[in-house]
Amino acid sequence: MASTTETKQKKMLILKSADNDEFEIEESVGVQSETIKNLVEDGFTFVPLPNVYTKALIKIIDYLKKHANKTDSNDEEIKTFDKDFVNTTFDDLFELVSAANYLHISCLMNMLCQTIADRIKDKSPEAVRKIFHINCDYTPEEEAKIRKANAQAFEGQFDESLD
C-alpha cells in the first residue's frame, strides 16, 4: 500500500472486491481500466467491483501498477512480468480474463485471450472440454459425423494434457 504522504499528494481510489476486501490505488493506475475511468469521470473515488474476486483483483492491480510505469527503458522488464503473469493455471486465467473483460482493460484482455488460445491450439477436443469444464452435448453419432466432415483437422497427434 502507498504511504500516507503519497496519499495526500496523489489522487487515490478505493476498489472493493466481490468478497469485500478494499484496495487503495492511485487514480492514474486505476484509469487504465475503462470501467474505472468512467466511474472516476463521474466523480467516484470508491469503486465496488461485484464481479471481481480478491484473488484476481490483487493480480490485476499488480498488472496495472507495472503497466502504469511503462517507459522506453523498462520494456524488457514488463515483458518478463507479463510472461510471469500468464504463467498460471487455466482456471486462474479464466478468472482473470473475466475480470479484465468486466474492467475493460483491453491490453490485458488481448494478452490473456492470446495466451489461452496459444495454450489450447494443439489440444484434443476432449482436453478442451475438460479445461473449459464443458459437458459434451453431442450424441456419439453426431460427434462422429463432425469428425468425419473435418477429417483433415484430426490428422496427427494432439496434446491431451490439461495444463
Binding site: A117, D118, N150
Partner: peptide, 26 residues
C-alpha cells in the same frame, strides 16, 4: 465458465485447423 463474448475473443485467435477440430467440443 466463460461468457460467450469472452469465448469469442479467445477462439478467434485460434488457427483454422484448431477451429475445425474444436467444432466437436460442444
Amino acid at each position: 465458465i466463460l461468457s460467450c463474448d469472452i469465448l469469442f475473443c479467445i477462439i478467434i485467435r485460434l488457427p483454422v485447423k484448431s477451429l475445425l477440430r474444436f467444432q466437436c467440443v460442444s
